[in-house]
């Protein structure tokens, strides 16, 4: 080998970042700027384009379908996160009992749907939620004489989507809570129980504050992911439409439809920017909140 001194050749760090930086610049930074240009255009596919100025944003604001998509997406994200978090925490608490046997089985069982991927969950949901013949209605009818024709895929599309998401992600989030609880366990709880605090008191005053940062992080991640939901409703609805009264239409689904079914990349980019601004706003809000907590 050759005799290097302590000093590093100046090009070395650039060599290490180069592969990332080059592809990143080309396939993320450039499209990001291009997306701003696109918001001022109307296109038919990437080949035909026409300058329309601020028309895309003006049209979006008066587009009832877009607002339905926004409403659905917000409803979906808030409801699924609001149900998911306590459920995941509850499961994690149950699984964190020191005397529990078969923990790895339970953990694997509950976590398993997250492995499947939303494409496959969407495809499965399209069959499982069918009225009369679907697995869910059949099972519920057999167990509780539930309405066998309960219209999951029309009137109750949103609850069906939320249930499918719960099935998929509760176990995933539980893993985070469980890891956090195990950290708490060692450091704090022992001292607290020696002080003679009750179970509930201990949970409220020791465990909960200690896992708060993780809860915040998991909530943010789930919220951001839910606001971008696409595959699940898209495939659940057999990809033909957005469901009756557009009940299954989400923002990203609308972006996809306008951009890649209709072929208007400009309109799609404008929708993308509105979504991006919302997500950036949420992230900033989260940072503010977590910073306030620390100080």
């Amino acid at each position: 080998m050759n005799r290097h001194r302590k000093a590093v050749a100046p090009w070395v760090p650039y060599l290490f970042v180069a592969p990332f930086l080059i592809t990143f610049a080309l396939f993320t930074v450039y499209p990001l700027f291009q997306s701003i240009v696109l918001t001022t255009q109307q296109t038919i596919g990437p080949g035909f384009e026409r300058y329309v100025g601020a028309d895309n944003f003006r049209n979006i604001l008066s587009d009832p379908k877009f607002w339905i998509a926004v409403k659905n997406t917000l409803l979906f994200a808030s409801a699924s996160v609001a149900i998911q978090m306590p459920l995941a925490l509850g499961l994690a608490l149950l699984m964190n009992q020191p005397w529990l046997r078969g923990r790895s089985f339970y953990r694997l069982a509950v976590f398993s749907p997250a492995l499947v991927g939303s494409v496959f969950v969407g495809i499965m949901s399209a069959i499982v939620f069918q009225a009369r013949t679907g697995m869910l209605n059949r099972s519920l009818h057999a167990l509780f004489n539930f309405n066998p024709d309960f219209p999951w895929l029309s009137t109750y599309l949103m609850p069906a989507m939320i249930i499918a998401t719960l099935w998929m992600w509760t176990g995933f989030n539980m893993i985070y809570f469980l890891a956090a609880l195990q950290n708490v366990e060692k450091e704090l709880v022992d001292s607290a129980s020696i002080d003679g605090a009750g179970t509930w008191q201990r949970f409220l005053h020791v465990t909960l504050p200690a896992i708060r940062p993780v809860a915040g992080y998991v909530t943010l991640i789930s919220l951001i992911a839910s606001l971008q939901v696409f595959e699940l409703p898209y495939l659940m609805l057999s990809r033909l439409n957005s469901g009756p009264e557009n009940r299954g239409l989400t923002v990203v689904m609308y972006l996809y439809q306008t951009g890649f079914n209709v072929g208007d990349l400009g309109y799609a980019s404008a929708i993308g920017w509105i979504l991006a601004l919302l997500l950036i706003f949420l992230s900033i809000l989260y940072r503010r909140m977590s910073r306030d907590e620390r100080t």
Binding site: F27, Q228, Y256, F260
Partner: peptide, 18 residues
Amino acid sequence: ALVIPAPLLLAPSYQLLY
């Protein structure tokens, strides 16, 4: 880049690849 949602890049990336 961590806060840029992937769907935003769908349309311009498609155009770039084209």
